[in-house]
Nucleic acid binder design. Structure first.
Lengths: 148, 148
DNA sequence: ATAGACCGTGACATTAATGTCAGAGTCAAT
DNA sequence: ATTGACTCTGACATTAATGTCACGGTCTAT
C-alpha cells in the first residue's frame, strides 16, 4: 500500500530491451544516479551514449555496479577498484593477480585502524570506570551517613 | 647539532612573565598556531588580547590545551569537548557530570566502528584466503606435472 | 629606522563519496 | 503541442581539523 503515486516508466523499458538508462540502473542496483555518474568519472564503468546524449548501459552493468559497491563496502577506494576491476570483470576474482596486494594492503590498514580504536576504547573505559567508581564510593558513603 | 639557525625570541619571554603569545603556547603544547586559533573559535579557550590585538594566554593555558588535545585524541569533537571542558577545568574529570554520557556515547560509537571493521576484516580474509588457496592448488598441480 | 621574527585576519585547500540544485534538453503518451 | 517523467552538465555543499597563503601590522635588537 501507498506504493507510490508517481507514474514511472521504468518497468516498461526494463521488459523491452537490454539497454538501461541511468535511472533504471540506479533502481536495479541501489546506487544513486549521482553515484553512477561518479563511478563513470572515476573510470569504473563506461556506458554508451544515445544520439541525444543519454547514457546507455548494457544489462551486465547491473552486476558490474553491484560488484563496485561490494568493493566500496569493503573500504576500498574507487582508485583501488579501478586498478583491478577490469581484471575481475574479465576473469574471476581468484584469478586476478592485481587484487591480492590491494586486499592485503587494505587488511593491514584495517588492522591498524582496529588497533587504534581498541587503544582508544580501553582509554575510554578506564576513564568511565574511574568516574563511575568514584561516584559509587560517594554514594555508599552518603548511604552510610544518611540512609536507614 | 644543527639545532636551528633561525633566531628565536620565545625563550626570553618565557622566562619573563606568565603571559604567553600564541607561538610560545604552540611550542609548549605541540598544537599548531592554526589549531590554537581554531580552538578559540570553537569556544574551547579564550585568551585575552593586548592593546595591539595579540592573543595573551595565561600560563595555565598550556595544561588546558594539552587537555583539549587529549580529548581530541580520544576521538571527541571540539563540540563535545566544549560541552564539558569548563567543568573539567574547574573540577576534576571524575567530578564532572557532563563528561560521563559523552564518554559512554563515544564508547558506543567506537564499538560500532570496531564491529564494522571486524566484519570487513573477515570478509577480506576470506577473499584473500580463497585467492591464495586457489593459487596454491594450481602451483601444486603444476608441480605434479612438471617438477622432478 | 631597519631587519626580521612574530602576530593578526581572511580565504582557500585538503579528503571521498554523495546530496542537491539550477537550467536546459529529451522522450513518450495524450 | 503539451505535460510530466526523465536525462544532461556543472557547480556548490557536506565533514572536521588542519595546512597554507597573502597581505599587513607589531615588536625588539641593532
Amino acid at each position: 500500500m501507498s506504493r507510490s503515486i508517481i507514474k514511472l516508466r521504468s518497468t516498461i523499458r526494463l521488459k523491452e530491451g537490454c539497454a538501461l538508462k541511468i535511472g533504471e540502473l540506479s533502481k536495479a542496483t541501489g546506487a544513486s544516479i549521482r553515484s553512477l555518474r561518479y563511478y563513470e568519472k572515476q573510470g569504473l564503468i563506461a556506458p554508451l551514449r544515445t544520439e541525444s546524449g543519454y547514457r546507455e548501459y548494457h544489462k551486465f552493468a547491473v552486476e558490474q555496479v553491484k560488484t563496485i559497491r561490494l568493493y566500496l563496502n569493503l573500504g576500498l577506494s574507487t582508485e583501488q577498484i579501478a586498478g583491478f576491476l577490469h581484471c575481475v570483470l574479465t576473469n574471476k576474482e581468484v584469478f586476478c593477480n592485481e587484487i591480492l596486494p590491494v586486499y592485503q594492503q587494505k587488511l593491514k590498514e584495517i588492522d591498524e585502524q582496529i588497533q587504534t580504536l581498541v587503544r582508544i576504547r580501553s582509554n575510554l573505559e578506564e576513564r568511565i570506570q574511574s568516574i563511575v567508581s568514584e561516584q559509587t564510593d560517594n554514594e555508599s558513603m552518603e548511604g552510610t551517613n544518611d540512609e536507614s
